[in-house]
Design a protein around this nucleic acid. Structure first.
Lengths: 196, 196, 196, 196
DNA sequence: CATGAATGAGACTTCATTCAT
DNA sequence: TATGAATGAAGTCTCATTCAT
């Protein structure tokens, strides 16, 4: 969660780290409010630092938002933990996905990022998320509750679409959308084949 | 489709109309490429006219994009026509929705607009779309193929989410998403309960 | 008053003349409201003609306003008429000057022009005004009521200053200013000489 | 005269202050030459800074000119100082007013401002000017040299009218106007001396 | 290291004037 | 001849980024 975009291994000085965190927090706020059009000066202001400090930690506005994106992937992956405890694998998967959705609702910045950060590409942080998602998915598939052909990336797209709805409506209607879309994951009941 | 945003009843002069169309076409292009950040000067350039001409037809950048939005709703509504001919209501509905999706794919500008034009709100042009969607939906519900509790707005959100995916991935993966989400519309087969 | 700026001797066609007058009237209005920043399109609109027509009659925005300026000089000169009937020459002069002032008050456009049309320069139309002013002035000087050293141009500057005040305050305070300034024209009372 | 429009208490950095002064100086120049139509880019150019710098110091073109206006009132008020030393109150008043007039002549920008800044209204800086003017006026009235009914605002209008003339003629003729108008302030002598 | 002043390309919009219809 | 659509230079202001203090 902490030094996501900092490739330098040397630990940052205490105050530098604090500034970095402040900037990230401010960026989250600004991003949530104004989307990708958030202004660097505004972010610096919210963080209580000068623009220069922002640029010391992040070479570019884009880099700053990228760092936020990194956080996002990690946090989402962490959200999977409880889902592994669930008795019913389908419940576990659902729980995880709703959790992810609410995280996006509570952090509008992430929703904005979802639109820019293509899925299944690049970022290392994303791998872990895909891994745990795949795990939960496989369990549910084995229990016969979920379509056998689904992949973790399919799930990713579903979340991505949900973020889109979230931002467009700006209210709670996405929950309805999400509930419907989740149904799309279910295995078609054996009813038919049996009847046939 | 035609003179969407022109409230003045007087018919435009031939050349003026041609320019208006050119500007709209250029705006579509620019919007597709750069989203809402597309620049008026660029649009004028693509249209082969001066900026002034753009502003003569549309008082504001926003108004220009609005006009595009109007087109969108109308065209989508028109896309429903063939669906009413389908033998199977579910096939009709699916056909319509895929058609809508492909229209968005072929006109990336619309996808950008989808993110700004909340559903179920405002614009008159949107009413017609909701109406025909509702009609097709009702038929499919009557035939027992689709969840009874769905509304035209639910369908709208589904399309909206699909646009989100389309833009994020930038490739064809949205088709997969769409196919899955469509499954979410299906009525849970009564097979089970009946058998019980 | 009519074809002031039209140097072509051929009489204009009836409708052309009517348009010309309309444009001038519209220009007066616009000038009064927006000063020299009045827009040609707006003037054309008020006149109920196209911009092209405005430009047919006046090659340039400046030329249009100049024409208004011409009117101004002529009308002011005509305002002197009654003043020649006055019993008392000083009363006659005062009457004339107040009349001029009120003409400017009632036609704010002129006030705007006053700031751009230097006095004592160029325009033929101005000569007549200077002539009659000089006449009235001379009479009042002969009767010993007015400073002997004043010239018609001094009077012109006084009017010009009054217009400045009129525009700056935007209300009636200029009357006060004018009254005071007029006193400055009076011959210093014989008191002095008597005492001497 | 110094940091007129800077309400922030923190002292500006040395270089920032220097730039601020440069911008103001450039604005004075531009205003003098082109009036309120002076362009921000031009001002920036004259000041040797980028446009951004102008906008950092003054949020708006209007704000910039306002700052100049503030200077004006203050400087004029300061010009009254010497007048209080004069033996003869009328000489003192005259001296002050001529001084004001010359200040406007030497700083044409102020003349332009005179046309926009109505008298007796708003600005705090103006109060001081009205106060000292009133003071000098009262003295001259007490000594019987000046019309008893005059107010500081009347004097203000007189200066305002003078600025108008100054700008219209563009030469020295305003001195003549001013001299005449000043005579308008004098108490009509005859009655008194006669009675005496 | 931090600060925030400076930069300047570039965005949107206006409007005098021209010219095709 | 009248119309009003088209033009495009020019104006105001913004904001990511750099750099002196």
């Amino acid at each position: 969660m902490s030094s996501v975009a900092n490739t330098d291994t040397r630990p940052l000085r205490a105050d530098a780290r604090r500034n970095r965190e402040r900037v990230l927090a401010a960026a989250r706020e600004a991003l949530a409010e104004h989307g990708l059009d958030a202004q660097v000066d505004d972010i610096a202001g919210r963080a209580g630092v000068g623009v220069g400090t922002v640029y010391r930690h992040f070479p570019t506005k884009e880099a700053l938002f990228d760092a936020l994106g990194g956080e996002r992937w990690l946090t989402l992956a962490e959200a999977a933990g409880p889902a592994f405890e669930a008795r019913d694998p389908w419940d576990g998967l659902k729980d995880f996905l709703w959790r992810c959705a609410y995280l996006h609702r509570d952090n509008r910045a992430w929703g904005q990022l979802a639109a820019v950060a293509p899925l299944g590409l690049g970022r290392d942080e994303q791998q872990e998320l895909l891994r745990v998602t795949g795990e939960l998915l496989k369990r549910a598939q084995k229990s016969g509750q979920v379509r056998k052909d689904l992949t973790a990336q399919d799930i990713g797209m579903l979340m991505c679409g949900t973020c889109g709805v979230m931002q467009t409506t700006g209210d709670d209607r996405w929950e309805r959308f999400f509930e419907i879309a989740l149904e799309g994951l279910r295995a078609r009941t054996s009813g038919r084949s049996r009847r046939a």
